[in-house]
Design a protein around this nucleic acid. Structure first.
Lengths: 213, 213
DNA sequence: CGCTAATTTGATCAGACTCAAGTGAAGTGG
DNA sequence: CCACTTCACTTGAGTCTGATCAAATTAGCG
């Protein structure tokens, strides 16, 4: 597993959602909610597939999960990596529009979609769901800017910074996912990802800032 | 204003959101809600800027609105075009992370963010907000696949099909936005957009299907 | 230790970008 | 009503970033 040394420039603390919402992050908090069922997944195991009946919403307890879409000819776009505390699998329809797989061994908690929002008790969970959705949206929107308008080097740099901001691991970020995963997340090829990394190592990043708007 | 002839292959009816939600689309329905204030915008007029205090959430009544992000060096990414019925300006924090401008003369309705969700009355609006957020998310996720993994031609084709699906105008889609806007939405340059259009006219589309997964 | 898979590195290619010029439509003003 | 400007778009030529193809290196793993 590779680690990249960079100094975190942007720590984007997530703002509160308009409609109230107390917020707990990174700390997968104490009381594991009632309705959820915990599930362990081996590395590369599929959690759900595109088109599956969307019966559950998931939260990552530990590990990393990727959600991705496929084009019929095999091209893949990983829309996000989900770390501990992140929610994924939120759907409007009754099918998942994504496939979800474990990037590394991980533990997730599955919430049945039926008893959400209504059951008073887990109004908090519904709340959390809305928050999760909002976060996903913000992520996606920033990612569109990256995909549409940034160079390979900028993509890699942004990716590293973002990851650094999400995992508070001192000043070393480790990359649990493969080059292929990174490539498919950033809209590049593995070769370009690899070259960008070496390029960054050599030049730009000599324990330097990577300034990004 | 140019119009492109294509046959709609995919009409993606939007599915219901998990937590109930009655759904009205395209018909900006009868009773214009109480709390909102209607506002007219001339073509290219700014509705709000990136960084502005996010006091309102908007719904398009007529016309088209674009929301975009800028990189410090001027590169722009238009994250979405919003048509009649669409909601935009939903924020978690207290600032807009986008700039919103009128693509053509349009009329929008602004809802003050304070009195949302709480006031019982507009619980329906809060509902609609969640729906709007979900739709934006779905859009964004599909758009990431486009930006990250599709060729110029595929991007244009997908864009046309999507627009065709959203505006039920027979089999002719018109493009109210400039080439620059389209380019900045699809992660291309205006020249490539232009070339792709002529390319499509000549070849692929002879009142044909554009098949896309 | 030998095998396989992942990553890096190299060489070439191509799709999209850049720069530049040409076309056309919409106004403007004489 | 017609020159003249302007602005959006199209088209062309050359360049460059990132993709593709291929080989070498490294890392895991039984």
């Amino acid at each position: 597993m590779q680690t990249a040394l960079i100094t975190k420039a942007t720590s984007s603390a997530l703002p509160l959602f308009a409609l109230e919402a107390p917020q707990v992050r990174r700390t997968v908090d104490a009381a594991v909610p009632a309705v959820g069922s915990v599930r362990s997944c081996a590395k590369d195991q599929e959690i759900f597939a595109e088109g599956d009946r969307a019966a559950f919403v998931y939260k990552v307890l530990s590990g990393v999960v990727r959600t991705s879409k496929l084009l019929s000819d095999g091209r893949r776009q990983i829309d996000a990596f989900h770390l501990a505390g992140d929610i994924f699998g939120i759907e409007a329809g009754d099918e998942y529009r994504f496939c979800a797989e474990a990037v590394v061994d991980c533990v997730v908690i599955a919430y049945r979609r039926n008893n959400l929002g209504t059951t008073g008790n887990d109004a908090q969970l519904a709340q959390e769901l809305t928050m999760g959705m909002m976060r996903s949206l913000i992520r996606a929107q920033n990612h569109m800017l990256l995909l549409g308008r940034k160079s390979a080097l900028e993509k890699i740099a942004t990716f590293l910074l973002d990851l650094a901001g999400r995992t508070a691991d001192g000043d070393a970020v480790d990359l649990p996912m493969s080059r292929t995963d990174i490539a498919d997340h950033l809209g590049l090829t593995i070769e370009t990802v690899s070259r960008s990394f070496t390029h960054l190592e050599h030049r730009t990043v000599k324990r330097t800032h990577i300034r990004l708007p």
